Amino acid sequence: MKKRIFPRFENTYRGNLHTHTTRSDGAYELDAVLHAYQDMGYQFLCISDHRKYYVSSIKENENFIILDGMEGEVGDSSYHIHAIADYSAEEAERFEAESIWPVTEQSPQETINEYIKRGNICIINHPRWTKLEYEELLEAEGYLGIEIYNNNCDRESLTGYATDYWDYLLRKGKRVYGFASDDAHAKDIHCNVSEYFGGWICVSAEGLSQKNIVNSMKTGDFYASNGPAFLTIDKEDRTISLQTSPVKSIAFISWPEHGVNVYDKSGKDIREAAFTVPEGARYVRIEITDQNGKKAWSNPLFF
């Protein structure tokens, strides 16, 4: 029987989880950032200023919401960890609005544990930019996923892509999700090569509220992108089929058995593909690439 993997709910919502303002080291005031993303059609945004926890008054809305959170730092700042409020954790002793959390001397694991205890999900930000070792991420527990694309890091130092970290973790049996974000700081919203609007996630959720968006993130009901789009992903037994926006290639990446890269030999766009996952494969994820080299990434399916 065919099962719809994405979107699981009727509506999908586009949002950015990693944005800075003048509350920390960003160039723009909060209102300017919010209006810029709304004007570009985003439906949610996390204000993730460094070490300063943001609490939003817009937790549920038909058009636009803000997720509570911050970007924390550990020790020598080699770990940057997102804390995003999870309102299904009802008994948590939460961070107060505008509370300051200096660079902690706790271990990365102690910091993750603290953030979760205080009612947050955790995402490890830009692991290539912070020069993390694969094994460090393998040893850590409790985080939801990692940034596999960071627009600012890509623009600044070509350290934005981290799918190799992701595949390493997945091959080792760690079930983590992949996120894309802007990490925008600079005063260049309207320039041609901007830190803004270059990495996002599209979430399938029951409705536009903090709780619904984060719940869907926790179950992997989203994809990450810096360009193209997944329209549908279906699964029937071991066969995965999907429809996308026009793309150059659709890659099914699996382990330990190899996947397949689907493309038109004439170089024309394709919009659909199917793949039967071989016996013995532990997971498969899908990576689509458009004619401009922009990509989108599904979350892994495990077998």
Rank of each mutant, 00 (worst) to 15 (best):
P108R: 15
D25R: 08
E139V: 06
P228H: 10
A205R: 12
T12N: 04
G119N: 14
I240V: 15
R4L: 11
Y143G: 04
N299Y: 00
D269K: 07
N61F: 00
I286Q: 15
F95Q: 14
E73M: 08
Y87D: 11
L242M: 12
Y28V: 06
C122N: 08
G220D: 06
T19C: 12
Y177T: 09
S88E: 08
L17N: 09
E10N: 09
P108H: 15
I250R: 06
R118E: 11
N63C: 02
L138D: 10
C202D: 12
P7G: 09
A281G: 08
K265S: 03
I146S: 11
Y115S: 06
Y161M: 07
I233L: 07
S56Q: 10
E272I: 01
Y223S: 12
W166H: 14
H80N: 12
P127K: 15
R238Q: 13
R8A: 07
Y28C: 05
E156G: 01
E156H: 09
L34E: 08
K235A: 11
Y143H: 09
G259P: 05
G69S: 13
T111K: 12
N151I: 02
Y53R: 15
L67K: 15
Y87S: 07
E257C: 00
E110K: 05
I47R: 15
D269C: 00
I253C: 12
G267S: 05
I112S: 14
I201Y: 01
E135F: 00
F44L: 06
M70H: 09
Y42C: 05
I148Y: 11
S56R: 08
A180V: 14
A274S: 15
I84W: 06
H82M: 13
N151A: 13
G26F: 03
V176S: 05
Y263W: 11
T21V: 04
T22S: 09
E91M: 03
A140Y: 12
K211S: 01
S78N: 13
